[in-house]
């Protein structure tokens, strides 16, 4: 059972306090979007073996959404950060690079 630190309330929360929300940093296809843009948004997920950016909801806690960078293979957590951003913050990226030197952000 994972534990993740909520960046809003600072609590190191058990997975039972949280609710997963799938891949982070997806771009919503708004009204008027093309077919491939819509397909990308609704159905295409990276589903990597390794570094993954994902959304989590502190549902039985402070109620805030946040993002986590996690290795899907080893369950290591590289960092958690605000959901109100379009890309992972630099300190999270550098932590990933430190522990996964060969990792390339797709």
């Amino acid at each position: 059972m994972l534990k993740l630190t909520c960046p809003y309330c600072g609590i190191e929360a058990d997975e039972t306090e949280l609710h997963g929300g799938g891949e982070a940093h997806l771009e919503r296809a708004a009204g008027g979007a093309g077919d491939s843009e819509l397909e990308q948004y609704l159905f295409i997920r990276s589903n990597p073996r390794g570094v993954h950016f994902e959304r989590w909801h502190h549902i039985h806690g402070c109620g805030k959404w946040f993002h986590a960078a996690r290795c899907t293979e080893t369950m290591e957590v590289f960092g958690t950060y605000s959901a109100q951003t379009l890309r992972p913050p630099e300190n999270t990226l550098s932590e990933i690079k430190r522990r996964r030197p060969n990792w390339v952000n797709a």
């Binding site: 929300g21 959304r55 109620g63 805030k64 959404w65 959901a83 109100q84």
Partner: peptide
């Protein structure tokens, strides 16, 4: 309620 919060927090913050 959660659905509204989600959109406000993650899309139109």
């Amino acid at each position: 309620h959660g659905w509204m919060e989600e959109w406000l927090q993650t899309e139109w913050w």
